[in-house]
């Protein structure tokens, strides 16, 4: 890409020679090698490992077999784990979208810039507090002697909540953990949509809901898609929430991969599980993208 200065031709060749030059690809190489060795090579090796055979005596036998994948497909336990992971991720993503949309829109149209960036900070800081701390906070709320139980006792509802170690509890905590990602993504999309479009629609007599559903949301659709893909991917790969809120008997994909690789020491099967998880996530998010884009084209046509 060429740059333009105030006066075309002002920077002569002599000047240009004196500018710090980063024209060559040299400075990129260390970083590229680092990522190739630290990310690409391990993933390639892991893919290869997923076709090896597991032997309890020597752990890993070099082979080229699909049996790890076949075991996954034929074992109802692992199929259930994937099914549960997909279902919880889909529900959590949908809830994040419904709750995140109004907040993101509210913030994007917030009159005071300073108050708005404070509110954004309030949403962003939790995002970087870490999953371990955020999930442990939800344990305090959801457990049978916790905050929610105490609040409910206060209004006369007693009895065990049963939210810990349940799919509902895991979903609630996941939604809270993932919401900031959705809100931040949607907020920047809404900020890119010109206010005047809404004013035009309103001046022509459209109510707020009509403006939203006919003008704003169709324009925001690519961003909505991006937010959903992000939340869905993060929730498919969630570790802390299913482990801490779900407990040892509640199985989702990420903890199962961990358990197969480090505890069962069954690398080939663990590797296959990891690729099933990645493949399924990609397949579903791509499917969603294609479906939405088809719809989008019809809207804009």
């Amino acid at each position: 890409m060429s740059y333009t200065s105030g006066f075309p031709g002002a920077a002569g060749t002599a000047t240009r020679r004196r500018l710090p030059s980063f024209r060559g690809a040299g400075p990129v190489l260390p970083a590229v090698v680092f990522v190739l060795l630290g990310m690409v090579a391990p993933l390639a090796l892991m893919l290869r490992t997923s076709f090896d055979r597991f032997d309890p005596q020597v752990l890993i036998v070099s082979a080229f077999t699909a049996e790890n994948y076949i075991r996954f497909v034929s074992d109802p336990f692992f199929r259930d784990v994937l099914g549960r992971t997909v279902a919880i991720s889909a529900v959590a993503t949908a809830i994040c979208l419904v709750l995140g949309l109004p907040v993101a829109y509210f913030l994007a149209r917030f009159p005071s810039a300073e108050a708005k960036s404070r509110l954004l900070l309030l949403i962003l800081v939790p995002l970087l507090i870490g999953n371990a701390v955020r999930t442990s906070a939800w344990m305090l709320i959801l457990n049978d002697h916790g905050v929610l139980a105490a609040l409910l006792r206060g209004v006369g509802i007693t009895g065990a909540l049963g939210l810990m170690y349940s799919a509902t509890g895991v979903t609630i905590a996941l939604v809270s953990v993932l919401l900031p990602f959705m809100i931040i993504t949607l907020n920047s999309v809404f900020e890119g949509i010109e206010r005047s479009l809404e004013d035009a629609a309103e001046s022509l007599g459209a109510g707020h809901l009509t403006v939203m559903s006919r003008v704003v949301l169709p324009l925001a659709l690519p961003g909505i898609l991006a937010g959903c893909v992000l939340c869905f991917t993060l929730s498919m790969n969630a570790y802390a929430t299913p482990v801490l809120i779900g407990g040892p008997k509640f199985h989702m994909m990420a903890p199962t991969v961990y358990q197969q690789i480090t505890e069962a020491m069954n690398w080939p099967f663990g590797a296959a599980l990891a690729f099933v998880l990645m493949g399924m996530t990609l397949l579903l998010t791509l499917g969603l993208s294609v479906a939405v884009q088809r719809r989008y084209r019809r809207w804009t046509a």
Partner: peptide, 13 residues
């Protein structure tokens, strides 16, 4: 790349 996948791949590597 999901951390759980990247982490396990690095461990095996």
């Amino acid at each position: 790349v999901p951390a759980i996948v990247g982490g396990s791949a690095l461990f095996v590597f």
